[in-house]
Simulated assay, not measured.
Amino acid sequence: MVSGTPTAVKKRNSQDSVSILENFEEKCPLGGENAVVLYTTTLRGIRKTFEDCNTARSVIESHQVQMFKHDVSMHSGFKDELRGLMGTKEVKVPLVFVKGRLIGGADETVKLEEDGKLSTVFSGIPKAVAICNGCAVVRFVMCIGGNGSCKVLDEKGKKTVKCKECNKNGLIQCPFC
Score class of each variant (00 low, 15 high):
D71Q: 08
G104N: 06
K156M: 05
D154N: 15
A56W: 08
K111P: 00
A130H: 03
V152L: 09
S17W: 00
N133M: 03
I131K: 15
M67N: 05
I20G: 01
P6M: 12
E22A: 12
K10W: 02
K156N: 14
P94S: 08
P175F: 11
E25V: 10
S62Q: 13
K27M: 15
L153D: 11
C174N: 05
H63S: 06
V9H: 10
E25R: 10
S17Y: 02
K164W: 01
L38Q: 12
R83K: 15
Q66K: 14
F78W: 15
I103Y: 02
H70W: 12
F24D: 03
V96P: 10
C166T: 06
K99R: 15
N34W: 06
E108V: 13
L112Y: 07
M1D: 03
G32L: 08
P175Y: 06
K99M: 06
G84I: 01
G32A: 15
L38F: 11
P94E: 04
D52I: 02
F176S: 06
G170T: 04
D154M: 05
S149E: 13
M67K: 12
M67I: 15
V121W: 02
V37D: 03
T120W: 07
G157S: 10
C177K: 08
C174I: 05
K111T: 12
C166R: 03
P175D: 05
K158D: 10
I172E: 08
K27P: 00
T5P: 01
D71S: 08
F176E: 14
G105A: 13
I46E: 14
K159M: 10
I172W: 01
E81W: 08
S17N: 01
H75F: 14
F50V: 09
T160Q: 14
P126K: 10
I125C: 02
F78D: 03
G31E: 11
L82Y: 06
P175H: 06
C177V: 08
E61P: 00
K159V: 15
V161E: 14
I60D: 05
K159F: 09
K168M: 12
G45Q: 15
T88G: 09
G45Y: 08
P126C: 02
C163P: 01
F176M: 04
K48V: 14
M1L: 09
I60A: 03
G100L: 07
K162A: 11
E33S: 12
